[in-house]
Simulated scan of single mutants.
Amino acid sequence: MTTIVDLATGQGLGVVDGHDHKLYRTVCTWWKEIEVLIITGATTGKVEAINTAIKNIKRTARG
């Protein structure tokens, strides 16, 4: 069981257990990237879409 604490205020936000703990660890691991998204709104969506289009063209070209 893990207690989630807001580091800015020190306030306890809740307790996680089981699958929630995995989500908590994932969010902690990616927090810097998540924070950048929240603050700037910048994503890699356009780049990912271009990469997908290129992969689809390659698949089509192979026949």
Rank of each mutant, 00 (worst) to 15 (best):
M1S: 11
W31E: 13
V36G: 03
I54D: 02
G10T: 00
V15T: 15
H21W: 05
N56E: 07
V36P: 01
G63Y: 02
T2A: 05
T26F: 14
V15Y: 00
I38A: 12
G12V: 04
D17N: 12
V15E: 14
G41A: 04
G41P: 06
K22W: 03
G12Y: 02
G14W: 04
Q11Y: 01
D20I: 02
D20N: 07
A53S: 14
E48Q: 11
I54E: 13
E35C: 08
T43R: 08
T26L: 15
N51Y: 09
I4E: 00
I4D: 00
W30I: 13
T3I: 08
H19K: 07
V47R: 09
C28M: 03
T43H: 06
N56F: 01
I34Y: 08
G41Q: 07
I50R: 12
D17A: 09
T60I: 05
N56M: 08
G14I: 08
K58I: 06
A53C: 11
T43N: 09
G12W: 04
T52L: 14
T60A: 10
Q11H: 05
K55R: 07
R25G: 03
G41N: 04
V16N: 05
L13P: 01
T60V: 13
K55L: 02
K46V: 05
R62T: 04
K58M: 10
T29L: 15
K32D: 14
E48N: 09
T9R: 00
K58E: 12
A53Q: 10
K22Y: 10
H19N: 13
V27A: 15
I54C: 02
T3H: 04
A61S: 10
T29K: 13
D6C: 02
I34M: 15
V36K: 09
Y24E: 04
L23Y: 09
G12K: 04
T44Q: 09
T3C: 01
R59C: 01
Q11D: 03
G14N: 10
G18L: 10
K32C: 07
V36I: 08
G45F: 15
T26Q: 14
H19Y: 11
I39C: 04
V15G: 06
G63Q: 00
I4H: 00
W30Q: 10
L23M: 15
A53E: 11
K22E: 05
N51G: 02
A42I: 06
M1A: 08
I39N: 12
T2C: 01
V36D: 09
K46D: 07
L13Y: 01
L7C: 03
A49M: 11
N51S: 14
H19W: 00
V27H: 09
R59E: 11
G45L: 10
E33C: 12
V27Y: 09
V36W: 08
T52I: 12
E48K: 08
V27L: 12
D6N: 05
L7I: 09
M1K: 05
T3M: 01
T9H: 04
N56A: 06
N51V: 14
A49W: 00
L13M: 11
V15F: 03
K32I: 01
H19L: 06
G45S: 05
L7F: 01
Y24A: 14
E35W: 13
K58F: 04
T40C: 14
V15A: 08
V16I: 11
G41H: 03
N56Y: 03
